[in-house]
Amino acid sequence: MIRQLLTYRDGCTDPHRNLATEAYLTETVPEDTCILYLWQNRHTVVIGRNQNAWRECRTTLLEQEGGVLARRLSGGGAVYHDMGNLNFTFSLPTADYDLRRQQEVLVAACRRLGIPAECSGRNDILTGGRKFSGNSFYHHGGRSFHNGTLLIDVDMEKLGRYLAPSQGKLESKGVASVRSRVVNLSQIQPGLTVSHMEEALWAAFSEVYGLPTRRLEPSQLDQAALERHYQCFHSYDWVYGQAMPCTFSCGERFPWGELTLELAVEGGVCRHAAVWTDAMDESFAQPLARGLEGCPFRVEDLCLRVEEAPACREVAADLCALLRRQDI
């Protein structure tokens, strides 16, 4: 049961440092405590933990124009961040994790600002049928976080310029482009600023949980631990993922998300595997990649490995059907 509410905001706009702070706050959140961390990134594309950077983002263009690519711990899809976007993270013990209650904080904050909002599925928040907040989730070692974006006054031209969603994703959403299905809240409530939303969130956090809030100060954080997290999030290997020669690739969009499977095959055996997905529950991706390494490159052998992986139980039927449709 949550008995203490903490808030944190340090003004940093470096995405790798902000992701390091998110990881640190989640790793160290005390029992019976929920931390609401608000943060902003300047000119950044953030991709989900198991996404292929080159397929989701026009990386060269982003870098040429002074942008930064970052990879988060949680699943989900790619998002563009600038100073017209406010990010939030709820960090708390997994035993106290309550997605609907956390999302109610966001809806209540919008209500305070005169904006009607509603949750759509697990990971989107809408106003007037258009998305202004996408959410993602992470659970590890008895601690969890729920994070997301709030589009206040984001540069929509750049949002569409740097993100490169697959046609399958667009078709599954029933829209012609990324920009056609998102909306800035400043369009709904002219004059709205990031500061207005920030104040509304602090108040709604206290209102929904029925507890006072206490502010965490940067001096209270372990700077050495933060630096260790930063070095990970800033590293090329984390941001771009392991590069490998791919001799086989297949993919499809399923109701639970899009997936691409890449295999490096040598001597009839899968020597290396990569699984890229924007699924919200992406916990199967890394176990699946490990499980396919060393597997004979035959459909039934591949399917057997998929079916034997406990983490793949919910998606095994779809993955095996995909593999059986390939010309192997």
Rank of each mutant, 00 (worst) to 15 (best):
I2W: 09
R3L: 06
T7F: 12
D10M: 12
R17S: 07
N18W: 05
E22N: 04
V29R: 06
P30E: 14
P30W: 10
D32L: 04
C34Q: 01
C34Y: 03
L38K: 10
R42M: 05
H43E: 13
R49F: 12
N50S: 15
E56W: 08
C57P: 03
C57N: 01
T60M: 12
L61C: 11
G66E: 12
G67L: 13
R71K: 15
R72M: 09
H81R: 09
M83W: 02
M83E: 13
G84A: 10
F90M: 07
S91T: 07
D98V: 06
L99M: 08
R100G: 05
V105W: 05
V107N: 03
R111K: 13
R112E: 08
I115C: 08
A117V: 07
G121W: 02
R122L: 08
R122Q: 01
D124M: 04
G129Y: 09
G129Q: 09
S136L: 01
Y138S: 08
G141M: 00
L150A: 10
D153G: 14
M156A: 10
E157V: 11
L159R: 11
L159V: 15
R161W: 04
L163Y: 11
L163S: 03
G168R: 06
K169A: 15
K169H: 10
S172K: 12
S172P: 03
S172T: 11
G174K: 02
G174R: 06
A176Q: 09
R181Q: 04
N184A: 02
L185G: 05
L192T: 03
V194D: 12
E198C: 13
E207R: 00
V208Q: 01
G210E: 00
L211A: 02
L211V: 01
P218S: 02
L221A: 02
D222K: 02
Y230Q: 00
F233L: 05
S235N: 07
Y236K: 09
W238E: 10
V239C: 14
Y240F: 15
G241H: 12
G241I: 12
S249K: 10
P255N: 04
L263F: 12
V265A: 05
V265N: 01
V265K: 00
E266W: 02
H272C: 01
W276I: 07
A279P: 11
A279T: 14
E282H: 15
Q286I: 14
P287W: 13
A289P: 11
G291K: 11
E293W: 05
F297V: 05
E300S: 14
C303F: 06
E307C: 12
A309P: 00
A311Y: 00
A311T: 05
R313Q: 15
A317I: 04
C320T: 15
A321Y: 08
R324D: 14
D327Q: 12
I328W: 14
